[in-house]
């Protein structure tokens, strides 16, 4: 990929006999929102830390913005990188505003934008309050504000919605949308797959230190060839309606069929979806409603992980 902002080639990280990261090749394109998912201990955080230059790779190369993640050149690059760690620890004795000012000074950027940044993450009212008195969600918001200081070109967000309430999660993804619109590249991890499946452009699934799958959510769904699920609501809630449905669907390649109380749940292959919908259309007014459910990212994740268990 020619416009890769992050370029990882043949990266290994070993701790004695343990291979935390085992031969990862990965490119993240400028302006992309990239998800890194995997079970605990899959190597996501280790790879994150190596991308940030916090851990040296045992072998292989990592370049960000064309610069190796070490030395003076990468130090300058760090001014345009924001990082929100999974285990966020801030200074309890400082207020929210003082915390941002401290990190702004370290990044060498103007501190006058700090109050605005606090307001952006919904902490304007708590700006002068000591972090000691912040809730977990408020700390996470402050951590996010810290990562956004200096208008970064690249953001690394490790479990960014940890501790946020639903309102906070919604605000976080709103800000993420704005960043994507501005062309900021984002790499994020999350265990809440339902949250990120609509929000990442591509993702990598890590397992045992390796990238097991890489692509868009849709391409991974197709690669897994997971069934789609349809929920069909019949007008006739009696056995007659179900029997008619069963008869109609005979020979349509139906994988599963469950029904009761006038509601049927049907599973079919992606290839058979249109044929099935066509057949259902044949029932006409007998059908009150049809819902089509694509396999979730969680189904895809479990599909890949089950392959090797």
């Amino acid at each position: 990929m020619t416009n890769s902002l992050i370029d990882i080639r043949g990266v290994h990280k070993r701790y004695g006999d343990v291979r935390a990261v085992d031969g990862v090749d990965l490119q993240v394109v400028t302006g992309e929102v990239f998800g890194l998912i995997g079970h605990n201990g899959a190597g996501k955080t280790t790879l994150f830390k190596m991308m940030l230059g916090l851990l040296p790779a045992t072998s292989g190369d990592i370049h960000i913005g064309g610069k190796a993640v070490r030395g003076a050149a990468f130090r300058e690059m760090r001014r345009s990188i924001g990082y929100l760690p999974e285990s966020l620890a801030l200074y309890d004795n400082l207020s929210g505003l003082e915390t941002l000012r401290f990190f702004a000074r370290l990044k060498g950027i103007d501190q006058t934008g700090c109050p605005v940044m606090l307001a952006k993450v919904g902490l304007a009212a708590a700006a002068d309050q000591r972090v000691r008195g912040y809730s977990k969600g408020m700390r996470q918001r402050l951590g996010f504000a810290q990562a956004l200081l200096g208008a970064p070109r690249l953001l690394f967000l490790d479990e960014p919605t940890n501790g946020l309430d639903p309102h906070g999660i919604q605000e976080f993804y709103q800000i993420l949308r704005e960043l994507r619109d501005r062309g900021v590249t984002v790499v994020l991890t999350s265990h809440i797959l339902a949250e990120i499946q609509q929000r990442v452009d591509r993702l990598a699934l890590m397992r045992n230190g390796r990238i097991q799958a890489l692509g868009t959510v849709q391409s991974l769904r197709e690669e897994q060839n997971l069934s789609l699920s349809l929920r069909v609501v019949l007008r006739d809630r009696g056995a007659r309606g179900e029997a008619a449905l069963r008869q109609l669907l005979a020979g349509q390649g139906i994988k599963e069929f469950e029904s009761g109380a006038g509601v049927a749940r049907i599973e079919c292959s992606r290839a058979g979806k249109m044929a099935l919908l066509g057949a259902l259309a044949g029932l006409g007014a007998e059908i009150a409603d049809i819902e089509v459910h694509e396999p979730s990212l969680e189904d895809v994740f479990l599909g890949y992980t089950d392959q090797l268990t």
């Binding site: 916090l54 130090r75 760090r78 001014r79 990082y83 620890a89 801030l90 370290l106 990044k107």
Partner: peptide, 9 residues
């Protein structure tokens, strides 16, 4: 907090 500090320039 060391990790966050070291991610700075």
């Amino acid at each position: 907090s060391l990790e966050l500090l070291l991610s700075m320039p």
